[in-house]
Simulated assay, not measured.
Amino acid sequence: MDNGQILERAKSFLYKNARLLDRRRYEYFFEQGSKEAVIEALRAYQNPDGGFGNALEPDIRCPHSQPVPTEMALAIMDEVDGFDPHVLDGIIRYLRKITLQDGGIPFVFRSAGDYPHAPWWAAEQDDQPSINPTGHIIGLLYKQNVRTDFYREEWFSKNAAYIWRVFEQEKPSGYHDGIQWITFLQHTPEQEKASAYWPVIDEWLLLPGTIERDPEAKGYVHKVLDWAPARGSYANKFISDADLHTHLQALVSQQQEDGGWPINWPPVSPGGEAEWRGWVTVQRLKTLKSYGMI
């Protein structure tokens, strides 16, 4: 299959199945679409309290604001280099409200359980802090420079202090924790302090099984291109050229007959699966583009 066919088949899949948001993301990265169009589609998922819900994270179907969909909104603005000040203002307002007394943001609120959701999106209490998504959220807020006055606010300082406490007391546990550590350490202004924790990350990334090297591994694993989805990803230095080549070839072969890429976890519903596959397909195309495959 030539490179043009990969893109054309994926485009057909996206226009048949994907959300407007992911079609706009595709257009931005591959058809000179505007970042403003991406942000406009993203706005539909933002609630009056400033947080994001409404199944922006397709396995959390509840309309109410939740931490991880809010994290995803920040990540989407970051990927198009378009931190919108009004969207940011709402997110800051929401985070100010949900930051816990001793710092940290919960993984998920109990309200997710009132609507269809994947089994891992369940909580028995609303006051349990989690590095996931606190580290990524605070790291991305450090990365953007559209709004910076809130860095001096108590809620923000509490979250940063919570993250440093986690780093002092724990080790990363799984891919989703790892990316929280990496994003925060990359963007915290306290780089001298951060330097003490990079060896912890590096040692963990080198452990067997952290980065799944088998391109055909089944189940919910995170492979070479999950850790290094683009040239310049932090984990690239732990991945050989041979492994990279093997996984890129495997990624091309994993494009399905309908033009999209699969997910490797059980979806909540057919609609949720289509939404996730739209998101993942754009992610896979971005990776292939970054490594010169399309």
Rank of each mutant, 00 (worst) to 15 (best):
N3G: 03
A10G: 06
Y15C: 09
Y15G: 15
N17K: 09
D22T: 15
R25A: 15
Y26H: 04
Y26L: 11
F30R: 04
E31R: 06
E40S: 00
L42K: 00
N47V: 05
D49I: 08
G51S: 07
G53S: 13
N54A: 09
N54K: 05
I60N: 09
R61F: 13
H64T: 11
H64F: 00
S65W: 14
S65C: 07
E71R: 11
L74Q: 02
V80L: 06
G82E: 15
F83R: 01
P85N: 10
D89P: 13
I91E: 07
I91P: 09
L95Q: 10
I98N: 01
T99A: 11
Q101K: 11
G104Y: 04
G104R: 06
F109C: 11
A112I: 11
G113H: 10
H117D: 03
A118D: 11
A118M: 14
W120S: 07
A122Y: 15
A122E: 02
A123W: 09
E124A: 04
D127K: 09
I131N: 12
G135L: 06
K143M: 15
K143W: 08
R147F: 15
Y151A: 08
W155M: 00
N159D: 08
A160I: 06
A160Q: 03
A161N: 04
A161I: 09
Y162W: 04
F167V: 05
F167W: 02
P172H: 14
P172I: 05
G174M: 05
T183P: 06
Q186C: 01
H187Q: 02
Q191A: 03
E192Y: 02
K193M: 02
V200S: 06
L206W: 15
T210N: 13
T210Y: 10
E212L: 08
D214N: 13
V221P: 14
A228R: 05
S233E: 04
Y234R: 03
L244Y: 09
H245V: 10
H245K: 15
H247N: 05
L248K: 04
A250N: 06
Q255M: 10
P262S: 05
P262H: 10
P266A: 03
P266C: 02
S269F: 08
E273P: 02
E275Y: 04
W276P: 14
R277E: 02
G278N: 03
G278Q: 01
V280I: 04
T281S: 03
V282Q: 09
Y291M: 14
G292Y: 00
M293L: 13
